[in-house]
Design a protein around this nucleic acid. Structure first.
Lengths: 209, 209
DNA sequence: GCCCAATGTTGACAGTGGAAACATGTCTTC
DNA sequence: GAAGACATGTTTCCACTGTCAACATTGGGC
């Protein structure tokens, strides 16, 4: 939309692009201190606007968080896709690498993971884009399982079942680690090793002997 | 008011046993509507006392929630213990049954699970009893793994690693289901079957061939 | 019978999400 | 160009929240 007399640079409206400013402010605060402790007023203040300005761009606070969560899902899907593509070797290796990326994502951004899977967003039906992003993540996993089945590497059966097992495993592990429920959660090396050992066990069960 | 000159029974102070009244009120409200949406004032009202009475028994709102979470851990540990004892057959069967119990617990009490593993309690170090209850759950799982290893059923290695894998799996599955992230989450039969199929895959990887 | 500590109440305060009314800058249409 | 129309941001207000301080009540130990 070219709405300005100034070419080259987008002319500032009142603020410029407040929506993305709000989004990044929210992301920053949320990453630092968690979902519950960040207020809409603080987000607005960080973006340099009044505390109700956000309502011109979001229905309510939850909508802001849903936006963040959606971005999280897309980022995670993209990261896993890259890792799968970049990992050399068979599907088995690729799957394990993808699992490792999932856990790493969760450990590096624990608050974001909590937002994506926690109760902060009460009714997902209100955010179709969010549902779609979450489904895309599931699809990424299902695809690699399918690919492994076609190559005769993974056992037969509904790929969604196998994908659900893989998802559950890495998801649970990430949450347990970033919830400090297992000793050594702080140690990055421990995390890497634990995620490898744990995923190896499941892959053993997935693989055709 | 409940006058307290009842003989034979412990005389009620002002309220009787306000702490447990608060606890059960909090549990009821939390189970219905989730952690975030329940207020301390509402809990107090349900218990029939003034909105600050809780501060004579709990340091703050978080302490009430920590109490609930601890009870949740103890209940879950106990349930799994019973299921393990009641299930006939080898350790493999017992482990799978325990996993099913874990998932069922989470699906039946999603808000409680969110409280136990979510960000509602910010600093666990403040609640040693809670940490202990959580560790006891981990220990329950580790024990059955150990027992399986001693019988030569499960592969060798640090039992805590194998237990972590099992825990991650059922934990992740429970959260994904009660977060409605997989289709069919509402169907109890689906949940039962999914949890069986998923745990069977991991057990395949755990078992010695 | 009296005092004290434990327990419960009242009232206040700062902070929150959100609605309504108002202000302001930009775009479209003459 | 001038004049609405409209999107955007502000001010003001409200109900509600968690928490603190001061006050009231009551039962058990002396």
């Amino acid at each position: 939309m070219n709405r300005s007399s100034r070419p080259g640079k987008r002319s500032a409206y009142h603020h410029g692009d407040l929506k993305s400013a709000l989004r990044s402010a929210a992301a920053t605060l949320m990453a630092e201190r968690g979902v519950d402790t960040v207020s809409l007023r603080e987000i607005a203040q960080m973006a340099g606007v009044s505390h109700t300005a956000a309502y011109r761009h979001y229905a309510d606070k939850e909508a802001v968080m849903a936006d963040l969560a959606e971005a999280g899902f897309r980022e995670l899907s993209a990261t896993m896709g890259q890792v799968i593509a970049a990992t050399r070797g068979g599907v088995t290796r690729k799957l394990q690498a993808a699992g490792g990326a999932y856990v790493r994502f969760g450990v590096e951004q624990p608050h974001l993971l909590q937002l994506m899977f926690g109760p902060a967003i009460s009714d997902w039906q209100c955010y179709p884009a969010l549902v779609e992003a979450s489904d895309a993540l599931y699809a990424t996993l299902t695809d690699i399982i399918k690919s492994g089945q076609e190559k005769g590497k993974f056992r037969a059966g509904d790929p969604r079942d196998l994908a659900l097992a893989a998802w559950s495993l890495v998801h649970g592990l990430a949450l347990l680690i970033c919830g400090r429920r297992v000793t050594g959660s702080d140690d990055a090396l421990f995390v890497e090793h634990a995620s490898q050992r744990v995923t190896a066990l499941l892959i053993e069960g997935l693989t055709v002997k």
